[in-house]
Design a protein around this nucleic acid. Structure first.
Length: 220
DNA sequence: GGGCCGATCAAG
DNA sequence: TTGATCGGCCCA
């Protein structure tokens, strides 16, 4: 009775999403808002993303210094997932966009769990408010029950652990806000973080704070 | 081989 | 506000 992930998307859905993700970075990023991601028995509606321009002069991108074993997936085809480990404990996920070799990608920063709340809660613990279940990039990954094994798989073809489907209700351009990316040291003036205005599941903005070596730092 | 810092989160 | 915790990447 359960639909396999691949059965939830029509061919038209797949074509439209493939088109969106293969296109220019910023429209792809905005277009991902409101889309639904199915995995691990849960469905998350994407509410917040960040765009990274790959090698094309974006110093904040993991691909900025060129291809390495870690970021290799970013250089591959659009619609595949780049999953990386950070801070010694967290996994985050990106959807690759644009043309092969460009290494552009969209970080999924937050979402609303619209199905499988009980399953997610089992993974996360009981005390977590609904709105926080996928609020923040690392928590979103946990909510979907994915990890390193998802790296390099497609969110479109239905063969991997993740499946992306279009918004049930389109998100209009006027309902989208933009601002600086969270926690990135470089290019703080680039407003490539996009979110659905007013949505409760959008993660809170934190500016990048440089590490302090000494106990006290000169005032600035 | 050493050291630094990171697309984070949760507790105090 | 701060600590946890470790892999990637730069530099020596």
């Amino acid at each position: 009775m359960d639909l396999s992930p691949g059965d939830r998307a029509t061919d038209a859905d797949r074509a439209a999403l493939a088109d969106l993700l293969a296109g220019p970075l910023l429209p792809a990023a905005r277009g991902l808002l409101g889309c639904q991601l199915h995995a691990g028995g849960a469905t998350v509606r994407i509410t917040e993303v960040e765009a990274y321009a790959g090698t094309a002069g974006d110093p904040a991108s993991h691909a900025h210094r060129g291809r390495t074993p870690r970021n290799a997936v970013m250089f591959g085809p659009a619609g595949h997932v780049y999953v990386y480990f950070t801070y010694g404990m967290h996994w985050c996920m990106n959807v690759v966009t644009g043309v092969e070799g460009e290494a552009a990608a969209v970080l999924l920063r937050a979402g609303e769990v619209v199905d499988g709340v009980d399953v997610v809660r089992k993974r996360k613990g009981v005390k977590v408010p609904d709105r926080d279940l996928a609020r923040g990039p690392a928590r979103l990954v946990v909510a979907l029950g994915i990890g390193a094994a998802a790296n390099g798989t497609s969110v479109i073809d239905g063969n991997g652990p993740l499946l992306l489907t279009p918004p049930t209700r389109p998100v209009s351009r006027s309902a989208i806000s933009a601002g600086p990316r969270v926690g990135v040291a470089a290019a703080q003036d680039v407003p490539w973080r996009f979110w659905i205005t007013g949505d409760a599941t959008v993660s809170s903005y934190r500016r990048h704070v440089p590490r302090r070596r000494a106990a006290t730092k000169p005032a600035e």
